[in-house]
Amino acid sequence: MPNTKNFNLVHLIEAVGDGEDLIRMLEIFVDSTPKILNELNNSHTDGNFEGIAASAHKLKATIDILRIEELQGVVREMDRLSSVQENQDKLPQFISKINDVMTQVLAEIKDTYLSDNKV
């Protein structure tokens, strides 16, 4: 399986193998992630720090499993800052970064793994 610069499936393949279950897991990722990003953006617009922390918290495990190294530090810092409601000026930068990278990862996964499976 090829790797891209944004993610690495080694850990996921180790957990579920590289067959149908991998595709099913990636489909779940592709289906659920936009919703989480949407919740994150809405919370940010509303100034809802609890909501930002909850979304960051939810993304943390996924980012780790898919080895999205560029976001591993970002998501943790965002989780921390939104929980303690400090340095709020940094949050837009973090949220923007997460949106950008995750959007790229979603596109790459769709192209690489799901193009034949998706209708």
Binding site: L12, M25, D31
Partner: peptide
């Protein structure tokens, strides 16, 4: 988290 939940369930 549907993704993490599914991975746990699978395992």
């Amino acid at each position: 988290d549907p993704f993490y939940g599914e991975m746990l369930k699978y395992h």
